[in-house]
Design a binder for these strands. Structure first.
Lengths: 219, 219
DNA sequence: TAGATTGTTAATCGATTAACAATC
DNA sequence: TAGATTGTTAATCGATTAACAATC
């Protein structure tokens, strides 16, 4: 089959979310045309995307939601819940600590928070266990943490990332405007650059008509 | 010249950030090759991107940073500082209220915060002026707010967006997992879906080698 | 069977990369 | 002048869209 292209990965991961919501609403079957509407994509694209997962539907019949969900979770690694930590507990970090990732499904659980400032650790009220930053490698390893959310001041971002890599995380979600370079290869990085988004938004509203503003790829 | 393609807009808006930092460091000239390194892009791409702005450099000489910056700010709308508001003052919203957008440059200023819960407005300590949500259209219009950051619970997201549109914002930065449809056309939307990013990160670390994890488009 | 809808190949489109001429 | 580097056209690559055969 070969490797799944990046834009397809993006759409499939979003599709998974949509299918999950549909199943909660008691819907069991869905056509490529219907899914296309949700993603703002043509039915062709949806069929092709799903086709990358291997034959998933039967001609003439709508897709069985449960089948597609299983295929996606098998191939994109969504079978098991992922364990996360938040590094840097300023305003943004503390907010992330309690953030309801993915609603009730609990697919992403925050199991630890880290900060260099020990006073801060004592001040914050949270159900999540908190630790001083120097213990990152040890705790990440012990708790088998998969993903780290980096919310430290930007000049500490790379170091925080390095510590997480030492502990063996699989991915970094970077909230600073820095470009993070993973210490050991095999670690993926995604960045959420809020100021960058404001910049893009400004440029779009300045150069574009509204309906083109958010093509599905994000980023 | 025609319209600037979306991927080019993304890169140019990021380039602007890089150029700004370089100028702060006292650098005045830079080559397409050097810029390419920063963006993880080839020098060809950079030259082509800059070329969309109209002739900007002179053959044989490196680009003059100040010239490129001016061209970008003129054509992407970065000349004037943008006024922002935060709608929804839960943990994430309160954090955004004080967020240092773009460091010292002050290109994005948060000038108002809104929440439906009046008790909450009284509890939050902030230098930003806070208002009850029903006043959104009035205040947005009065303070000439350009951009709104939507950080309300997801079932209130569309309504919050509608109120902001009524007031005349030009863009919405959506922090909820909902797809927001702008009430009046001409309003652009960008979404930051944190759970979605965790999902993508999981998929990438499951299917990809590290260095492919973050192509520049974000998207 | 007829209608609906997927699977899958082919055509189109657009962006990236390469190449090199222009010129400071 | 020679070296460096941009401007700009051409070639490549990949993703999206279209089309339709397959089949339930």
């Amino acid at each position: 089959m070969g490797q799944i292209p990046l834009p397809v990965i993006y759409r499939l991961s979003y599709l998974f979310d949509i299918l999950e919501k549909m199943e909660e609403d008691g819907i069991h079957n869905v056509s490529s045309a219907e899914l296309g509407e949700f993603l703002g994509q043509s039915s062709h694209t949806i069929r092709k995307d799903i086709h990358y997962l291997g034959a998933a539907g039967t001609a003439g019949n709508k897709y069985v939601i449960d089948d597609i969900k299983r295929l996606i979770s098998d191939q994109l690694g969504y079978r098991t819940a992922k364990r996360c930590c938040v590094v840097g507990l300023g305003r943004l970090g503390s907010a992330l600590l309690e953030h309801p990732f993915g609603g009730g499904c609990n697919r992403f659980r925050v199991v630890a928070g880290f900060d260099t400032n020990v006073n801060r650790l004592e001040t914050i009220r949270s159900s999540v266990e908190l630790y001083p930053a120097y213990r990152i490698p040890e705790i990440v390893r012990r708790l088998e943490i998969d993903l780290a959310l980096i919310a430290v001041p930007h000049d500490q971002a790379q170091e925080a990332a390095d510590r997480c890599c030492e502990g063996g995380v699989r991915g970094l979600l970077n909230f600073t405007p820095m470009v993070l370079v993973p210490k050991n290869s095999g670690v993926c990085v995604r960045s959420i650059d809020i100021t960058g988004e404001l910049r893009i938004l400004t440029a779009l509203s300045y150069t574009r008509k509204a309906d083109e503003s958010e093509p599905y790829t994000k980023e």
